[in-house]
Amino acid sequence: MTARQVLVVALGDVRGPVLEAVTLARTLGTPTVLSLQPLAEPDLHALGTAGVERALVAELGDARHAAAVAGRAVATAAEVTGAHRVLLPTSFVAKEVAAHAAWLLDAGLLLDVASLAEDGDTDQVVGGKRVFAGTWETRCAVTCPVAVATVRANAVVATPADRAASTAAEPLQVDATLPRGLELLEREVRPTAGRPALAEAATVVLGGRGTEGDFAAVEELADVLGAAVGTTRDCVDEGWQPHDAQVGQTGVTIAPRLYIGAGISGAPHHHGGMQASGTIVAVNVDPDAPLVQIADFAVIGDLQEILPAAAAAIREHLDQSRGS
């Protein structure tokens, strides 16, 4: 029996979440990558290390930002490669693209899974995830031949393949016509301050209302940990942070290996967006704050004192271990 073809979709840069999805794809079959932007030499090298022999590149211009067009590219790539399993690192955008691809492929759709495995008895793929703010664990099977799944960041550790491949990139022709009457007027990429993206970072430091708008201590600890910075809905409403820094049910859902929330009380909306995190640390003046109650470790006190002191201690440790 030949190995099953698995398609992994890179909507943007080839970064951690794409390599995590490739790692997961290797457990299901032979991964091929579809990229919606040109692949540079470092991208091909990273994919080769991950064991990807074949990469398809669909160049769609700005049309790729329309979910219907990107979804068409994904469906085309699945048909060209014969892949019955399609994986996308998750995000709001990725879920829209996955929806269109699934619609075109008559596929079953699994969203934000943390695991994915073939059930040999039923020949069905089964995805696992946590729901209801991390209080329930579910497994869901796709009951039709083709499955499209979005995969949560940090659910799988990206590892190199046993045997590296030399990735060959080939163009994929896709109809880039936008849906009737749809037009992209403007698209501006905001600067990132050199920090990792919130949705995919392994460590995230978040500041809430307790920062009173001063995020310097949050950013200092984030930078010593190489972490992304996030925040809560009320800080976005105050104009202290942009909307896509908002973690919660109506913002970004994160599940980093380490979550540090400072000055965050932990409203249910916020919980729903972070409770699948690996280790949860809270820093708060109030020991009764809901976030403290769900934390693994909590420091009760002033975040403006505690975070810089922690950053200094970690920096000192890192300097010593580098020096020795």
């Binding site: 006190g301 002033d302 004192e305 505690i306 922690a310 200094a312």
Partner: peptide, 16 residues
């Protein structure tokens, strides 16, 4: 949770 209180200014070091 395991809770420590930053009474003596050691909270940051304990977090680290």
């Amino acid at each position: 949770p395991e809770i420590v209180t930053d009474d003596d200014g050691e909270g940051g070091v304990l977090l680290a």
